[in-house]
């Protein structure tokens, strides 16, 4: 399995409102609301933590799910987020990934 590294896109805005992550893309001004799992992945998308580690630490630790199933679902989800320009996927760590900060109110 080749490793995947994900980074938050620099052209989106993000804010947590009442526990829900809202994302707006500057490219086409589309507003998205992320599910709980997508939010965990988005928050962990720092460009240098491998997706497999994110799944192990953030998803499997919080939800009762087998890691191979969780990884498959996460792969699908990041592909979808990448298509919408919210995340980018790389086969190598991205040293200067600096999407919006993720502190929430």
């Amino acid at each position: 399995m080749s490793e995947k590294y994900i980074s938050r896109s620099k052209s989106v805005a993000a804010r947590t409102l009442g526990g829900e992550m809202m994302i707006m893309s500057a490219k086409d001004s589309t507003l998205f609301s992320l599910s709980e799992v997508a939010t965990l992945i988005w928050e962990a998308a720092d460009g240098h933590t491998p997706l497999s580690e994110i799944v192990e630490r953030r998803i499997c630790a919080e939800f009762d799910v087998r890691s191979d199933v969780a990884y498959r679902d996460a792969e699908q989800l990041v592909e979808e987020l990448a298509t919408r320009g919210i995340l980018s996927i790389s086969s190598r760590p991205v040293p200067d990934a600096q999407g919006p900060a993720v502190e929430a109110p």
Binding site: K10, A13, R15, M24, A26, P100, A101, V102
Partner: peptide, 8 residues
């Protein structure tokens, strides 16, 4: 502002 995640 952008690094704090605002839509500017």
């Amino acid at each position: 502002a952008r690094s704090l995640g605002f839509n500017v």
